[in-house]
Design a protein around this nucleic acid. Structure first.
Length: 411
RNA sequence: GCGACUAUAGCUCAGUUGGUUAGAGCGCCGGUUUGUGGUACCGGAGGUCACGGGUUCGAGCCCCGUUAGUCGCCCCA
């Protein structure tokens, strides 16, 4: 009995294995295939950045920065942060690596992200996203292309059933400010009747009152000022081009005027693909236009739009388990044939045939083990009169692949 | 940071008002069929009942604390 205690996994991390890992890989493989159709270029980004990359882009005061980032000092006493999102790092690279030369540039990436949060269904401290951004394109067509790609991806994954695209506009900077002021004025008039959380939001993040889950707030959110009444002509026109572009592309959408973004750099289009199948974490893919971000990192005003989607959440929605092909399982029923069997196993694999072997435990039970393995065929290998015997069983043993296996396994 | 629920075999879970030596299925190991087979049958190994206190003649079960997990709130870039 060892006195060494096995270390526990870190809170909010996950070990993904087997069928779940196959689902995970299926999501990233499908994303890679789709993004190439739309000619998004692949980028590999660092997993950590100087903390300023995120704190400047997010705004210093938010909870997000103060409580929910994985930050640490390195040996040079520099504050670094494990990336909580892709967008800020990509924006930083755009500026420091001179990607303006490629503008407008379409970028796709995927990988792990880190947020110091309490884990719950579909939320982890280390989680994984796929991400797509268009930087340097001010036109609504960029928003449409990005949404069409997202819609396409969800359909290819077979999970578009029960998932709806909710769409909103936050207007340009001036529209957004006017609307925000009207909301504050409206909710302030009902302040004492709002939930405690929303009274707090009134100061910090009034837009968020609109998607409060508290019934005390919902009484008022229905009649709250609508962004539509504050949109400039240009903002109206922009949104109209996005919606008509979606219609033309055959992408179904619903207007959700309560859909907001908490950060100031968001402009115009905001969207989320939402499902009711994941409990409280219903957003499967979300994004929007962030024309104000580059300036917060000290760069020139640069229009940009993007989205990200949680790989775990997408994988959870996949209907069918991702099954690995399994052409043949060799059952070694006599250890005298073991060397022969292992040699043939190697030959099968070199021929591109998915093969495995069961050669341990009671020889008499190996056939049953092979049956339970789920292989399409079982090659039982025995030994008689000084020579190996081969016998192939399966539901379909007349096909060309079986004949090829038979030929390779011939003693 | 807050709340509710949960913690028993490698896995999924039973376990009566608190009463002898802790239960099943799956998985693992072994045996059985005088075997070209199809998930069978029999047996075995495997438990500090999360951890630490308390109540009691007696605790897997009741109480307190800790830790961890699940779900939700806050937050959601």
């Amino acid at each position: 009995m060892s006195s060494i205690k096995t270390p526990k996994p870190v809170r909010g991390t996950q070990d993904i294995f087997g069928a779940e890992a196959e689902s995970f890989a299926h999501v990233t493989a499908t994303f890679e295939r789709i993004r190439k159709l739309y000619r998004f270029r692949r980028a590999e980004m660092p997993v950590f950045e100087k903390s300023e990359v995120f704190s400047r882009s997010l705004g210093e005061t938010t909870d997000v920065v103060s409580k929910e980032m994985y930050s640490f000092l390195d040996r040079g006493d520099e504050s670094l942060t494990l990336r909580p999102e892709f967008t800020a790092g990509i924006a930083r690279a755009y500026l420091t690596d001179g990607w303006k030369q490629y503008a407008p540039v379409k970028i796709a990436t995927h990988g792990p992200l880190f947020r110091y949060e309490r884990p719950q269904k579909g939320r982890y401290r280390q989680f994984h996203q796929i991400d797509a951004e268009v930087i340097g394109a001010a036109e609504p067509q960029a928003d449409v292309e990005l949404l069409a790609m997202a819609d396409h991806l969800l359909k290819e994954l077979g999970i578009s059933e029960g998932v709806t695209l909710q769409l909103n506009t936050l207007g340009d900077g001036a529209s957004r400010e006017n609307w925000r002021a009207a909301l504050v004025e409206y909710f302030r008039a009902h302040r004492s009747e709002l939930s405690e959380d929303s009274q707090d939001r009134l100061e910090r993040n009034p837009l968020r009152i609109l998607d409060s889950k508290d019934p005390r707030d919902k009484v008022f959110t229905a009649d709250a000022p609508k962004i539509d009444d504050y949109l400039s002509a240009e903002a109206q026109d922009f949104f109209a081009q996005v919606t008509s572009g979606l219609d033309a592309a055959g992408v179904a959408w619903e207007r959700n005027s309560a859909l907001v973004r908490g950060l100031d750099y968001y402009r115009h289009t905001a969207f989320e693909f939402v499902t009711d199948r994941l409990g409280a974490q219903g957003t499967v893919l979300g994004g929007g236009r962030y024309d104000g971000l580059m300036e917060s990192l000290g760069g020139p005003a640069t229009p940009a739009v993007g989205w990200a989607a949680g790989i775990e959440r997408l994988a959870m929605l996949l209907e069918a388990e991702q099954e690995l092909p399994f052409d043949v399982m060799i059952a070694v029923e006599d250890d005298a044939a073991a060397t022969f069997a292992f040699g043939k196993l190697n030959a099968l694999r070199r021929a591109g045939i998915v093969a495995d072997i069961v050669a341990t435990g009671s020889p008499k039970k190996r056939f049953d083990k092979a049956v339970k393995s789920g292989a399409a065929r079982i090659a039982a290998i025995g030994f008689a009169d000084g020579v190996a015997t081969v016998n192939i069983r399966g539901d379909n043993t007349d096909d060309a692949l079986t004949q090829a296996i038979q030929a390779i396994l011939a003693p």
